[in-house]
């Protein structure tokens, strides 16, 4: 069993769908931080079998709510003095801009680089997002 030490102060992004951690890592630009960041892939999960996690040492000043669009059902735990002081279950934002990228080669965004990549929530139950231009479903698989 891989052992990664607990955080004293920081943020744990938990219940990321397996394989989704790097997308969140890149979106949050965690490579620019000087603090300790741990990515845990394919950790055991009682709910889903497998999950990814990200542990970040220190405060993180970004809008985390948007992460719901990248990986549905994830949770964010805020740690203070070694204790979880806040546990947030992220919902699905109605609309996200320049978070997800449309990969449909027939979409206008594939040839016009200046356009924003905007997705809207098409189905709350399944967490499906669709590009506002071509209505292609978002998939994090290329």
């Amino acid at each position: 069993m891989l052992n990664i030490s607990g955080l004293r102060d920081g943020v744990v992004i938990d219940h990321i769908q397996p394989g989704g951690a790097f997308e969140i890592y890149n979106y949050l630009k965690l490579d620019k931080l000087d603090c300790t960041v741990a990515i845990i892939k394919n950790a055991k999960s009682n709910k889903t079998g497998k999950k990814d996690m990200i542990k970040i040492e220190g405060p993180l000043c970004v809008d985390l709510d948007i992460l719901g669009a990248l990986s549905p059902n994830l949770t964010v735990n805020i740690i203070r003095n070694g204790e979880i002081t806040e546990k947030r279950h992220l919902g699905l934002p109605e609309r996200v801009t320049n978070i997800l990228r449309c990969r449909n080669p027939r979409c206008i965004t594939s040839i016009e680089q200046e356009l924003t990549h905007t997705f809207k929530l098409a189905d709350k139950n399944t967490g499906i997002y669709r590009c506002i231009y071509c209505e292609q479903r978002y998939s994090n698989r290329s």
């Binding site: 449909n104 027939r106 979409c107 206008i108 016009e112 231009y133 071509c134 209505e135 292609q136």
Partner: peptide, 26 residues
């Protein structure tokens, strides 16, 4: 336009009514 969504882009910047006359397979 052969690309899907092009008329919607046009509508976002247009000051006249835009009618989509067919955008790709969309």
């Amino acid at each position: 336009h052969p690309k899907e969504g092009a008329p919607l882009v046009a509508a976002q910047y247009s000051s006249i009514p835009v009618i989509n006359a067919g955008d790709g397979g969309h």
